[in-house]
Amino acid sequence: MPPYRLPLYHRQSPVVRCVNFLCAVLLTLVLIAGIILFVLWLSLRPHRPRFYLADFSIPNANRQSGLANLPVRFAVDEHNPNQKIGIYYEEIVASVYYGDQLVAKGPVMQPFYQAPKGDTPLLGQLTATGPAPTDPAWGRFSGELSAGNVAMRLLLTSTVQFQVKMWDTKHHHMKVECDFRMNGDGTLQQQDKNSQCALYF
Rank of each mutant, 00 (worst) to 15 (best):
Q64C: 09
Q64A: 15
Q64L: 15
Q64N: 06
Q64G: 11
S65R: 04
S65H: 14
G66A: 02
G66T: 08
L67T: 12
A68I: 13
A68Q: 03
L70T: 13
L70Q: 14
P71D: 12
P71F: 10
P71W: 09
V72W: 01
R73F: 12
R73Q: 11
F74M: 06
F74A: 06
F74G: 01
F74E: 00
A75D: 08
A75F: 00
A75Y: 08
V76Q: 04
E78R: 07
E78A: 12
E78Q: 11
H79Q: 14
H79V: 14
N80G: 05
N80P: 02
N80T: 06
N80C: 06
N80H: 08
P81T: 10
P81V: 12
P81S: 09
N82V: 14
N82E: 15
N82F: 01
I85G: 07
G86P: 02
G86E: 05
G86V: 15
G86A: 15
G86Q: 12
Y88C: 08
Y88L: 09
Y88H: 07
Y89W: 01
E90R: 10
E91R: 08
E91Q: 02
E91Y: 04
I92R: 06
V93K: 05
V93D: 01
V93Y: 03
A94K: 00
A94I: 07
A94R: 03
S95A: 14
S95G: 13
V96H: 09
V96M: 02
Y97L: 12
Y97I: 12
Y98P: 08
G99L: 11
G99Y: 08
D100K: 06
Q101N: 06
L102A: 02
L102F: 03
L102I: 09
V103Y: 11
A104L: 04
A104V: 03
K105W: 08
K105I: 10
P107W: 00
P107C: 00
P107S: 02
M109V: 03
M109H: 12
M109D: 07
M109N: 04
Q110L: 04
Q110G: 01
Q110W: 09
P111R: 00
P111V: 00
F112E: 00
F112V: 04
F112N: 00
F112Y: 00
Y113R: 10
Q114I: 10
A115T: 10
A115P: 04
A115G: 08
P116K: 06
P116L: 13
K117F: 10
K117P: 06
K117H: 08
G118D: 09
G118F: 09
G118Y: 03
G118K: 02
D119I: 14
D119W: 12
D119S: 03
D119G: 10
D119E: 15
T120N: 12
P121D: 13
P121N: 11
L122S: 15
L122N: 11
L123H: 15
L123S: 13
L123I: 13
L123N: 15
